[in-house]
């Protein structure tokens, strides 16, 4: 029983960290992997999703629907931002970093001015379960399931749907795709919207567990960038295994030495990966299988 209890505790911590990494990096990974745009406003799309989710839930919408609303609104905002700003910077990656950083500053400060420094949150639903004398939040288990569902859903979308085929074609050979009648501009817009919606989904899913403040996106930023950098451009061969490895490192170090070492572990890993595998895990995996 004691063995089961500690194994469950370890699995729970691993799953919890894995879910956080996957959910928070998915939007960033899609936009970076598919479009090559480094979106520094990622955290603010997360904040947007969380704020919309909390408002909708407090207005009486059931939480799952509120989370969906949060994701959709963040996606819509993302498509507008893409049309107005990002579209003009596709071949200027450095400029797009500056532009998205500017958007992030404007969003944080704008929300602070318009909605104030805090917002009332929604409580975490579902309560807790007891396993071997310790209690665990049930909602965190739901988040783990969501992370797996998210990976599965994205895989289906990109590899088994018409949208996925066209999107990948647009990314690999835009001129060719265009010649075959694909409206590449529209595809870019939809892909960016998808990334923003995934960020909004992350915000919505974590809104019930967190403080609602305009700067809340920043707490996701380090983890999501570390995961994408370690993973490389491909979300399935890269970000997902990267999240698993990083979750192992972070959960282990946090369990043995505390939160500080968990954070240090993440950052040391990313430095080593940049030095040894500049293409990230996906670049390395694809390189060896080719």
């Amino acid at each position: 029983m004691a063995l089961f209890q500690s194994v469950f505790a370890m699995l729970y911590q691993f799953g919890d960290t894995f879910a956080f990494l996957v959910i928070s990096c998915a939007g960033l990974a899609v936009i970076f992997g598919m479009m090559g745009v480094i979106n520094l406003a990622h955290g603010e799309f997360i904040m947007c999703g969380a704020y919309v989710t909390a408002s909708a839930a407090r207005a009486g919408l059931p939480l799952p629907l509120a989370i969906l609303t949060g994701a959709l609104v963040a996606g819509a905002v993302g498509m507008v931002v893409e049309r107005l700003v990002i579209r003009h910077l596709y071949h200027r990656p450095l400029d797009s970093i500056i532009a998205t950083w500017g958007i992030s500053l404007i969003a944080t400060q704008g929300v602070l001015i318009v909605l104030g420094s805090t917002m009332q949150g929604v409580g975490t639903p579902l309560g807790s379960i007891d396993v071997g004398g310790r209690s665990y939040s049930l909602y965190r288990l739901v988040l783990m399931a969501c992370a797996l569902g998210l990976l599965g859903g994205l895989y289906m979308l990109f590899y088994h749907s018409r949208f996925g085929v066209i999107a990948r074609a647009t990314i690999q050979k835009p001129q060719m795709a265009n010649a075959l009648g694909v409206n590449t501009g529209r595809m870019y817009g939809l892909t960016f919207g998808l990334g923003a919606a995934l960020a909004g989904l992350a915000g919505g899913l974590y809104a019930p567990t967190m403080t609602m403040v305009p700067t809340m996106g920043a707490t996701f930023i380090v983890e999501s960038f570390v995961t994408v950098v370690v993973g490389g451009a491909d979300i399935f061969v890269g970000a997902a295994p990267a999240a698993a490895i990083l979750a192992l490192i972070k959960a282990g170090l946090t369990a043995w030495y505390g939160q500080l070492f968990g954070q240090i572990g993440l950052l040391v890993t990313v430095i080593l990966v940049i030095r040894i595998l500049p293409g990230g895990l996906s670049g390395w995996l694809k390189g060896t299988t080719r």
């Binding site: 805090t118 949150g121 309560g127 807790s128 209690s135 939040s137 049930l138 567990t209 700067t215």
Partner: peptide, 17 residues
Amino acid sequence: GAAQASYYEQASSASVG
């Protein structure tokens, strides 16, 4: 700080009690 305040919600949902 705002980020660390997330502890209360998470501790409560895990029934630390």
